[in-house]
Computed example of a mutant assay.
Amino acid sequence: MAPVLSIEGITKTFTDGESICRTLDGISFEVEENEIVCIMGPSGCGKSTLLRIINDLEHADTGTIREASKDKTGKPTTAMVFQDHALFPWLTVYDNIVYGLRLSVQKLSEEEIAKRAEGLLSLTHLDSFAKAYPHQLSGGMKQRASVARALAIKPSVLLMDEPFSALDPFTRRELEDEVMRIREDLRTTILLVTHNPTEAIYLADRIIVLSARPAVVAGILYVDIPHPREMANPEFLKIRETIIRMVRGKEGLRE
Results as ranks from 00 to 15, higher is better:
residue 88 F to C: 06
residue 70 K to F: 08
residue 35 E to F: 00
residue 28 S to A: 05
residue 83 Q to N: 03
residue 99 Y to T: 14
residue 33 E to S: 09
residue 58 E to Q: 14
residue 40 M to D: 06
residue 34 N to G: 00
residue 84 D to Y: 13
residue 86 A to Q: 12
residue 69 S to G: 05
residue 100 G to K: 03
residue 43 S to F: 15
residue 62 T to M: 02
residue 39 I to R: 02
residue 115 K to C: 13
residue 74 G to V: 10
residue 84 D to N: 14
residue 91 L to W: 11
residue 30 E to F: 10
residue 44 G to R: 04
residue 98 V to F: 06
residue 43 S to W: 15
residue 28 S to V: 05
residue 72 K to T: 15
residue 61 D to M: 01
residue 36 I to F: 03
residue 50 L to S: 07
residue 44 G to C: 12
residue 51 L to N: 06
residue 91 L to Q: 14
residue 44 G to S: 09
residue 78 T to F: 03
residue 42 P to E: 02
residue 88 F to G: 03
residue 73 T to F: 12
residue 114 A to Y: 11
residue 42 P to M: 01
residue 81 V to E: 07
residue 115 K to I: 08
residue 53 I to W: 00
residue 38 C to S: 14
residue 28 S to D: 09
residue 69 S to W: 10
residue 49 T to G: 03
residue 111 E to H: 09
residue 34 N to C: 00
residue 47 K to G: 11
residue 84 D to S: 11
residue 102 R to Q: 10
residue 80 M to T: 13
residue 37 V to P: 10
residue 114 A to W: 04
residue 91 L to H: 13
residue 46 G to P: 13
residue 36 I to D: 01
residue 92 T to H: 08
residue 75 K to G: 01
residue 56 D to L: 15
residue 30 E to I: 05
residue 63 G to L: 01
residue 82 F to S: 02
residue 64 T to V: 06
residue 46 G to K: 02
residue 48 S to D: 09
residue 97 I to T: 01
residue 102 R to L: 02
residue 85 H to Y: 14
residue 91 L to S: 07
residue 48 S to V: 04
residue 49 T to H: 01
residue 91 L to I: 04
residue 74 G to P: 01
residue 38 C to R: 07
residue 63 G to T: 03
residue 89 P to M: 01
residue 100 G to C: 05
residue 80 M to I: 13
residue 37 V to R: 02
residue 39 I to P: 09
